[in-house]
Amino acid sequence: MSQQIPVEPRAQVNLVGFNKNDYRGLPSTLCQGCGHNSIASQIIAACYELNIVPENVVKFSGIGCSSKSPTYFLSRSFGFNGLHGRMPSLATGALFADHTVKGMGISGDGDTASIGFGQFKHMVRRNVPMVYIVENNGVYGLTKGQFSATAEVGLSLKHQGVNPYMPVDIAWEALVGNATFVARSFAGDPKQVKELIKAAFSHRGIAVLDIISPCVTFNNQETALHSYAWGKEHEVTIHDVAYVPPAEEITVEYEEGEDKDVTLHDGSHIILKKIGHDHDPTNKTAALRILEESNNCNCLLTGLLYVAPKEPSLIDLYDLPDTALNRLPESRLRPAPETMQQINSMMF
């Protein structure tokens, strides 16, 4: 079942001198056609286009099919495949080590919405500076086809019967949890996935990307809400997302009053070209409303739902030195010998 994540063979290099192969990982061991492979390809493309130095990224994941995927991209980046549902805490600690490194977490719907629901909510609430991608397929793949918490009520799965419970909406949970960047996308819409990943990398704070990523083996029936067929049929894009890097001229056609231009933390822009909705992504109430409406009208709403680019991230709340914490020498970490006497004199 081993397959290479498809990337263009060109040896062209980006502004930091890397070609796309420098962003690749090991061959995927996921199923042929898995949505997660498509997302991995878009991560590779986005990092290449963003001119990110691979060593400047650190990858995290939990447990599950999704969480295996960080080995399929960015081999030159540090990575930690942690515990089921507990990647957010791991990442929170690790990101303090060097605040100049960009964090990226890959999780699944089981990892995020079931076992890791608590850690997900608290990561969001603390505004941990990382891109957090949920590869959401409504089903447990590695344990062979059980319902996940994002499975729709009434979904019927082989050996499992009919799901009687209401689903968890990850984008909704992120929004009500005060996430500062929330988007939903669809693995069958790679262009949008890529642009959202780029925007997420430019955000300073938690960037939750809930990406519907079909499981071709266990949950791809045409009527299933996490299938390719259903997604293709029911996807409603809020807007065309175009990412414009910092200090680059905006050449995207832009209609004043119609389209939205959001400036992100690093000076980049997201240009949101209006399609159907006139959605202001800086308005959380509006984001909640269109999300709820789309769920009610049986459609897969994709695009940037919400962004608050100016909120301080968790790490910004600590007054840390500019030098990475993990590079500070003993002379800057261990209190000076003369303090010992003072401390002892403070005891009774």
């Binding site: 791991l90 080590a97 608590g118």
Partner: peptide, 30 residues
């Protein structure tokens, strides 16, 4: 050198997260 803080104290949501944060930081070289 800078007068900034060199020690992070973080109260987490539970012990599962407390050890997760500590292990993440230890892995990161802290």
């Amino acid at each position: 050198e800078t007068g900034k803080t060199t020690c992070v104290v973080l109260q987490t949501e539970d012990e599962l997260a407390a050890i997760g944060v500590a292990v993440g930081a230890g892995w990161g070289g802290l």
